[in-house]
Amino acid sequence: MTYQIHPLGDQGLCISWGNTIDIQINHLALALAEHLQQLQLPGVLDLIPAYSSLGVLFDARRLLREFPHQQPYDYMCKRVELEIQKIVEVDFSKGRSVEIPVCYDPSLAPDLERIARQSKLDTTEIIHLHSSHTYRVYMLGFLPGFPYMGTVDDRLVTPRLASPRQSVPAGSVGIAGSQTGIYPLDAPGGWNLIGRTPLRLFDPNRAEPALLRPGDQVQFTPISLSTFQKNSAAP
């Protein structure tokens, strides 16, 4: 598959397979990230897989010290291109399956009614459409542990709010365009909110702070307001 590599200044590079949301391309980006992670290349600080790209941040100070005769970006480009050749077969079965309980009660879903009106469906149909589908976690970003998942049924596609909310409560499940996501923390945001999960998407005290990983398969399960309240983390 064709790709381009661009520098992120003297701090890193970004490998891009086009400007698209595509499962196969995303799989390739994740596979390369995992492969490079296992190699533990000297000087690599961070690997940031996204929808159709992989960011590689490097420690230029260290590369200048350890490889004084090579320009760090050129060195890292060559190294990465060598490894891209090795990713010939991508294992599609790798993502974990994760079930996320969601309460779609109107008190926790300020935008549900509007989406239903716009698509000329009733709210139970919207809830059914959102929870009867398995979503892929394409990437984490925006906030610590925030999963960008997709893609939702065409009838649920809704643009971001023109004016973002000052504060969205942690656990809120939202829709932006054809993507669905979950706010791991209280934060400002412009996604359309259709429910809330009692699960903690991000907890700094856990060994693995983020609940989800890129590549996971997520299934939402509707729960009642009383179940939500029972399972909701103490404030």
Binding site: L8, C14, T20, G141
Partner: peptide, 30 residues
């Protein structure tokens, strides 16, 4: 643009035609 990697120092162009330079507490993708 679909979201991709950013890092402190990245200069992004906002829809209003003005730039923002990301600093050390910036998000990881944009």
């Amino acid at each position: 643009l679909v979201s991709s990697a950013v890092t402190p120092g990245t200069i992004q162009l906002l829809p209003n035609g003005q730039p923002i330079i990301l600093m050390t507490d910036s998000q990881t993708t944009g």
